[in-house]
Design a protein around this nucleic acid. Structure first.
Length: 274
DNA sequence: AACGCGCCCTGTCCGC
DNA sequence: TGCGGACAGGGCGCGT
């Protein structure tokens, strides 16, 4: 589901709406979305009376910071949505798992059909420690071609799988891993450490380009993803390989292939990607 | 210690 | 029409 561009789109929507507004109560409809050490009572007690402060993102996670340096970090899983109740499209939410009720009568809703999403509650130090476990932000200045090259040296795992590990690079999921590898003309099953410096450069550039373009288009909606107002993203139209098995490669015209690696599909052009 | 696998859960689609 | 199986954007815990 939501990868970096989708989380970023939600964050931008919420950032324009939430800061300064105060929580009156938190209602957890489906407690299994809470981290194992968290209960609805603890979450509600931590947030009641606090105002939303900064809304941010780390990898695929939406970071809701409240006054007092309290953070709720939302991992959206496969089908998680964060939508304002005041949005006209909020009526489409059929699996609301939690509600942040606001003193002004509005609410922030978390909807999650499959309930793979998760809420974690952190103080400043706890979040700093957790964030340090996540890898580089691919859109940051630190994510250079040299850094990607260095990071891949010790791993024999296929580069597609390597990109999905959030401890190495944070925010890339299956869609954008496939798209970036196509744009960089690299075979997804190549061992990570087999990438040359030139290939690392192409992959780094391709990742940044595809993620930035997807943000511009407000994310990829295949079926479940919605932005902070409940609207769909438009980047699905720009996908060049993901979900296009059997369709012609946009570069050479040969059919795009679908294969499986570690129980997850990948899509590539066998002629263009080596 | 790096890696692959099974599992968490619901909905949809496809073949029979 | 019904049913079983495959599949879906993620991530954790486990065994090797």
């Amino acid at each position: 589901m939501p990868e970096l561009p989708e989380a970023e789109t939600i964050v931008r929507d919420l950032r324009a709406r939430l800061p300064g507004r105060r929580v009156s109560d938190v209602e957890v409809v489906r407690p299994d979305i809470l981290a194992p050490d968290l209960t609805p009572q603890v979450l509600a007690a931590a947030l009641r009376g606090r105002a939303f402060d900064e809304i941010g993102r780390r990898g695929k996670n939406v970071v809701l910071r409240f006054d007092g340096d309290v953070r709720v970090v939302v991992n959206l899983g496969m089908t998680g949505r964060l939508v304002m109740a005041s949005s006209p499209r909020a009526a489409e939410l059929s699996h609301v798992a939690a509600r942040f009720r606001l003193e002004d009568g509005d609410a922030l809703l978390f909807d999650d059909t499959r309930r793979f999403g998760r809420f974690d509650l952190y103080d400043a130090a706890g979040w700093a420690a957790r964030s340090a476990e996540l890898g580089a932000e691919p859109l940051s200045d630190e994510f250079t071609a040299g850094a990607l090259y260095d990071l891949t040296r010790t791993s024999r795992t296929p580069i597609r799988n390597w990109l999905l590990d959030q401890r190495r690079v944070a925010g890339v999921g299956n869609i954008y891993a496939n798209e970036a590898l196509f744009r960089a003309r690299i075979d997804p099953k190549r061992p990570a450490r087999s990438l040359t410096r030139a290939e690392s450069r192409r992959l780094r550039d391709a990742l940044r380009e595809v993620l930035a373009q997807a943000i511009e288009r407000r994310g990829t909606t295949l079926s479940d993803y919605r932005d902070g107002t409940g609207a769909e993203g438009l980047f699905a139209h720009q996908l060049q390989v993901y979900g296009r098995a059997g369709e012609p490669c946009v570069r050479c015209g040969r059919p795009v292939e679908r294969r499986v690696l570690s129980n997850r599909s990948y899509f590539f052009c066998p002629k263009c990607q080596r």
